[in-house]
């Protein structure tokens, strides 16, 4: 590689970010001046200073105001806690945006229906085993969440190909519980 470590690091610090929070999108340009960050959005420049704590609980000044916030970075998303509200903010270096777009997508297997957990919870009862024939709307398992037991039903008729859920196991939202074929 022609680039030295130092050179690479300098090249990687972007001066412009594509920022999104729900429906809100903007491009933020960043410059440093006298210990403060100058953030320019749509022609307007804000002065922001962050405390040196670098922990989950931060203090900041934004222009003439003061802020107390929570901050956590997880899987490429910043969770910002302000006034009790958690905002999920995606911050991307615009130079990487193109690369993200060409990354291969997950390909779903054809002819099979994956029944996924609609909510995080605990599997309290499995009602089917591999090889069982199920009808549409038949209960395949019971998921306890939010203190209620929810019957999870087959979206269509078929034969149970796989049961990935285990009784008394916690599942996350989107986990595949049962796979139906045919």
């Amino acid at each position: 590689m022609a680039l030295g470590r130092r050179g690479l690091e300098e090249r990687m610090i972007p001066l412009k970010y594509a920022v999104s929070c729900g429906e809100n999108r903007s491009v933020v340009e960043i410059a440093e001046a006298a210990g403060a960050l100058l953030l320019t959005v749509q022609g307007k420049t804000h002065t922001l200073r962050l405390d040196a704590g670098r922990r989950a609980l931060r203090s900041a000044s934004l222009d003439d105001g003061r802020l107390r916030c929570g901050a956590r970075y997880v899987n490429g998303v910043w969770q910002i806690v302000l006034d009790g509200q958690t905002y999920e903010v995606k911050v991307a270096d615009p130079r990487f945006e193109g690369l993200l777009a060409v990354a291969p997508a997950d390909v779903a297997a054809e002819g099979r229906v994956q029944i996924k957990a609609p909510i995080p919870g605990l599997v309290v009862a499995l009602k089917v085993k591999p090889g069982d024939r199920v009808e549409k709307d038949q209960c395949v398992l019971v998921l306890a969440a939010m203190k209620l037991e929810n019957e999870i039903a087959a979206p269509r008729a078929g034969v149970v190909a796989e049961v990935l859920a285990r009784e008394n196991a916690a599942v996350e939202k989107g986990d595949i519980l049962v796979v139906i074929e045919g």
């Binding site: 690091e9 990687m12 903007s26 962050l50 931060r58 910002i80 993200l100």
Partner: peptide, 28 residues
Amino acid sequence: RPEVAMLLAAALEYERIRRCTPQRVGPP
């Protein structure tokens, strides 16, 4: 206040990247 959260996130990301080793910069 999503606009304020977005400014904070941009600043925090800048702070994170600036202190990161080069290897950790790149793929999210």
